[in-house]
């Protein structure tokens, strides 16, 4: 499965949930599918998506917003693997991490990552995240359905092909304006 195909599956399942996307090509491809108000693109902040998602999961707990969804890459997670440990330690039941694992730093010339030899799903299991392994968009859609109806914290380990979708535009947006768009979307739903 291509990353953009995986992202389409996430978009289809998360129209009314906050989605935090890791930086660079992943955020750009997500925005190219649909640039929705429930998307928070991390425009830089390397390795921070799981931390932000875990913090957001804490912050929305008990509200009308039932899940915080994180789209992370293997290279980004490997830049801050302690984030997975903390997610496992805090165990937010409303956290869904979707790891798009292509084994390379796709945004930086497809240099190989540790994930070519290490199984990040096994690492997630070791820190008490609930791991679902998926290989294609059908399995990813099913996994998302399960994680949105059963308590986590979830870690969907999705294997994707290396490479970026061609012709995707840069995200030339102001982070303050973008963050405020996300905050406004979220605040309207927290007490709905």
């Amino acid at each position: 499965m291509k990353r953009i195909e995986a992202l389409r599956a996430v978009v289809d399942a998360t129209s009314d949930l906050p989605v935090i996307a890791t930086c660079a090509a992943t955020s750009r491809e997500l925005a190219s599918i649909e640039d929705r108000d429930n998307h928070l693109y991390l425009l830089d902040a390397m390795g921070l998506a799981v931390s932000v998602g875990t913090g957001l999961a804490q912050a929305i707990e008990g509200s009308a917003v039932l899940r915080a969804v994180v789209i992370e890459g293997d290279g980004s997670l490997l830049m801050n693997p302690g984030a997975a440990l903390t997610a496992g330690y805090l165990r937010p039941e409303n956290l869904v991490i979707v790891l798009l694992d292509n084994g390379v730093y796709a945004s930086t010339a497809s240099i190989p990552t540790h994930a070519q030899q290490l199984d990040l799903g096994r690492i997630a299991e070791a820190v008490d995240l609930k791991v679902l392994q998926v290989q294609n968009t059908e399995e990813l859609a099913l996994a998302l359905r399960q994680t949105l109806s059963e308590n986590g914290p979830w870690f969907i380990h999705a294997r994707t092909e290396p490479g970026n979708e061609p012709g995707i535009e840069l995200l030339l947006i102001d982070p303050v304006v973008h963050g405020d768009r996300f905050r406004r979307w979220l605040s309207q739903r927290l007490h709905a």
């Binding site: 998602g53 801050n80 903390t86």
Partner: peptide
Amino acid sequence: YPVSREEEAMGLVGAYPFAGK
């Protein structure tokens, strides 16, 4: 709660204001 490194804390605690916290 503990975090493993300070950058983690920036992401975790930095996310709170999106939800008014």
